[in-house]
Nucleic acid binder design. Structure first.
Lengths: 160, 160
DNA sequence: ACCATTCCCGACTCTTTTAGTCAAGAATCG
DNA sequence: CGATTCTTGACTAAAAGAGTCGGGAATGGT
């Protein structure tokens, strides 16, 4: 899992569409400008979002894109899955000595760690809706965000 | 953030060393065999771990590697940082329209989302020690782990 | 009917990152 | 001395990521 450009851009685009929800379709060109996403790349990303059923499109003169559901009904997890496949791929199958004898020779106590992480991330993404993002207060980039302090103060969730 | 081979391997190696902790130094050759990590790759990874001060080494006939601290004192976060730099890089600086006007043109309500995720992941890694991994019950790969069900049942942590 | 607008879509290129190999050298033990 | 084992940088090959390009097909306006 890595925040690729596709994910970042898709999120920007979807947020913009969420804000425009209810109004007229927004053409790719406009989205490109307002969100600082390379022009030709926008269509590519929107196409994936469309195939995943998250947006619908209208061709012709005053065409463009609209969300196909309300912003409250669309989660970040869906967006991520639409553009980059699985949110968190199976590590176990990927490297030397995985899969077939996934136990890595000494009883696999490691894969649960990645799986737990995957569930954590996926769970997080599933809990964030476009509506929530659109509503979120802007944060200065690099500034220590308030929630971080709150999170640190919070009692540590047990991991084992 | 992505579980690269380096991270996966480093974790295997460190787990093996954790199990051998207290005994004689373990040579790279042996680790390679027991953990199914390509031979020449092992040294490279161990070197990074050494530079980060997580392991120490002994040359010569009965040399090898040992943890430089007790397994309880070493977290996954340290291991990840040792081999792959930051656990979660700053997304804001990376793509078109980031950084300088990080607000993505419409008040950056997105970067907090990534930062939150980063904190979540980092926090998780910081909470997992080698000792915990070594003690963890092996899980069949692909089998639905018990903790997953537990996690799903758990009341959703508020994300906003 | 025609034309401008806008989506559709695959193929292609360029760059960066990842994964892994190799070979020469330096310390240490017996 | 010589076997063993770490040290280190350079090197390569493959994959993933980021972005471009160009032809085509629907739609709406006039």
């Amino acid at each position: 899992m890595r925040i690729t450009s596709s994910i970042e851009y898709a999120t920007r685009l979807m947020t913009a569409l969420a804000r425009a929800h209810g109004g007229a379709p927004v053409p790719a060109e406009r989205l490109s400008e307002s969100d600082n996403v390379p022009t030709d790349y926008v269509s590519q990303i929107l196409l994936k979002l469309k195939r995943a059923g998250l947006v619908s499109s209208q061709r012709g003169s005053s065409g463009g894109y609209v969300l196909s559901r309300a912003p409250e009904q669309i989660t970040l997890a869906q967006v991520v899955r639409a553009v980059d496949g699985d949110v968190f791929e199976d590590v176990c199958e990927k490297y030397h000595g995985g899969a077939k004898d996934c136990r890595h020779q000494d009883g696999c106590s490691i894969s649960p760690v990645w799986q737990k992480l995957g569930a954590l991330v996926t769970g997080y993404f599933e809990g964030v809706t476009l509506a929530a993002i659109a509503a979120e207060a802007p944060a200065a980039c690099g500034a220590e965000p308030k929630w971080l302090a709150a999170l640190a103060a919070e009692p540590q969730r047990r991991t084992t």
